[in-house]
Design a protein around this nucleic acid. Structure first.
Lengths: 191, 191, 191, 191
DNA sequence: TATGAATGAGCGTTCATTCAT
DNA sequence: TATGAATGAACGCTCATTCAT
């Protein structure tokens, strides 16, 4: 009963996702229009909503994909040898999330699980990100008086805070990185 | 004559603000509609926009008012004798900002100055908040290896991060406070 | 083998009908959704349309069933001894048809034969209703200057008209019965 | 405060109505599309909904207009000298209402007042129709044992019933008129 | 017979904001 | 300053029906 689904359905879904990816790289996340999407793919609007609950749900998937790609890169780094190293490793991720206010908004909205049973894709990446960080932090040259888990929480808090600031007119990308290095040094290597 | 006009103008503005405050306390910030507001006050829509640049601008004022009232309370505390004390002092503020996702969104958007010349009201409260914190932190029993300014930045980062989490379904208010105590202990009193 | 298939087919049809009856008694005719129906029964949407021409066709069957049950009751009355008696006898039927605007709509749409060859179930009940009425009217204490057939037409006209009115907000069930007694007295017993 | 409305607003409303009338005469009531309407008139969709509650509300106005025009004609007849005369007088109206099933549906739905305070336009025409009928019936050569009001109710009941039948495939316009003459003779001139 | 993905086309909605008067 | 009509553009929705497998 849940069998014959795969072939056509999956293909349609992939076509929608593929086209959506193109739109995003062309005009950005915020400018993606469902209407354009379905007309480009050549399916009915109803078909879109049969595959995705709503626009946010599509965004959740697309943004999570990008985050996961960045996490893949991050995972190739097996050790953090300094705070600067940590910051350099997570900067691509922060750059992406702060690339559009819209992306940051979606990220903030969907980063927490809406309900236990329906963990979104972005929420999953947060978890994965946390795991990666924690693993690398355990063996790093950082303070040992608190757990790696807590250490990770702090990194995320300072990251979000920095992104929020960077989305205001006065604060540039360079400032973001500098500020973060200072803050994380104070957080991770108190003298 | 010009004076009289100014007076009337001020009165209209005040009536709009007063009515807006009532709407907010009745239905919350998010549910405030310009349309309802002007029809209650008895002026035209255009009049609203003659007095306020846009809806955000009104929200900026209303939310800043509330924050300032909470900061007034906070100012009556002249010393922080522990991290718990810090958390207890700032909790009312955090509760307010996390009371509605909409308030948090506005807060995040307007907390940074949009441009040097047009510092918003919320941005001013952030500055004031920062000053209050820094002042109290200087004399508190906290780590001395970093500046009070940096200490304050961390408090704000953990606060924002905690609020964001608390706005997700899985995280309650109690958790917010507990989590914050743990985090700020690690931040402010590294052993 | 063909028999077995036929049996299974009949069973599916019966299951669909049975489940539909439950839905109707739970949520009413209008709220019945084919989607809910098939998922409850555990068959695909297409299967429904293999058994029923369209949704109206199912409704035709379900509504006709109910009407026939009410006609069964009506048939136990063998004589009409007054207009009040007539009205009391047909009231259950009118109550059912006016129970939902949707039922009335379907009834109106399907009460006339769409084409000679495809007389619907409801159309058949109309015919049966007419026969019952005509039979009872022949021996009743009613005007004799016109045929029982015409008498019956009038009863139906006044009935439909009364139902239409009762489906408007201002008119209640009680009014329906009162109005009908007055009208039918004038129709059936002109002095 | 309710002053400056008239000029532009009324003109826009008239343009919408005028264009709607054209659409209706071109493609019929059912085929009128709000989207086509606003794009033809050159206003935004929001403008339509600022002037009319919904599509039904527009239909109510358009159909009521037509009915009123037919009632204007009917009003030029000051006496009914026979049942045939009555039928001939109301036939244009019946023809219009039965011209599209959609029109009949709207008519049935909106002919009753939804609530005391919001009498629709069609409901008003029904009232007007009733008044006209009653007035002419008083002096006609019809039965005197019942009130003109009741007489009118019967005419309307037989009319609606006849229209409903005529909208079924088997029944033509000619039949409608013939049937009605027979029925109304029995109703209005019982021997 | 059975499947279930896809269709389709329009409606109503939203409401801050603008602009001609 | 004040007015208020008009804008706008996309979203979500609906859900019976079809059709290729």
């Amino acid at each position: 009963m849940a069998r014959a689904k795969q072939l056509r359905s999956l293909k349609t879904r992939e076509r929608l996702l593929g086209s959506a990816r193109e739109f995003v790289s062309d005009v950005g996340f915020e400018e993606l229009r469902i209407e354009d999407l379905v007309s480009t793919v050549g399916v009915a609007k109803g078909t879109f909503f049969a595959h995705f609950k709503d626009k946010d749900s599509l965004m959740d998937i697309l943004i999570a994909e990008r985050i996961n790609a960045l996490l893949d890169d991050m995972e190739t780094v097996h050790n953090f040898d300094s705070v600067e190293h940590v910051v350099a490793s997570i900067m691509p991720l922060l750059m992406f999330i702060s690339s559009e206010r819209y992306v940051f908004d979606i990220f903030l909205r969907l980063s927490g699980a809406l309900a236990v049973e329906e963990i979104g894709k972005i929420a999953e990446t947060i978890y994965r990100y946390d795991c990666i960080l924690i693993d690398r932090l355990k063996s790093g040259p950082f303070r040992q008086d608190i757990s790696a888990e807590l250490l990770s929480e702090g990194i995320q808090a300072f990251s979000v805070s920095s992104i929020a600031l960077s989305l205001c007119a006065l604060h540039s990308e360079q400032n973001l990185e500098n500020r973060l290095v200072i803050q994380l040094n104070a957080w991770m290597c108190p003298s």
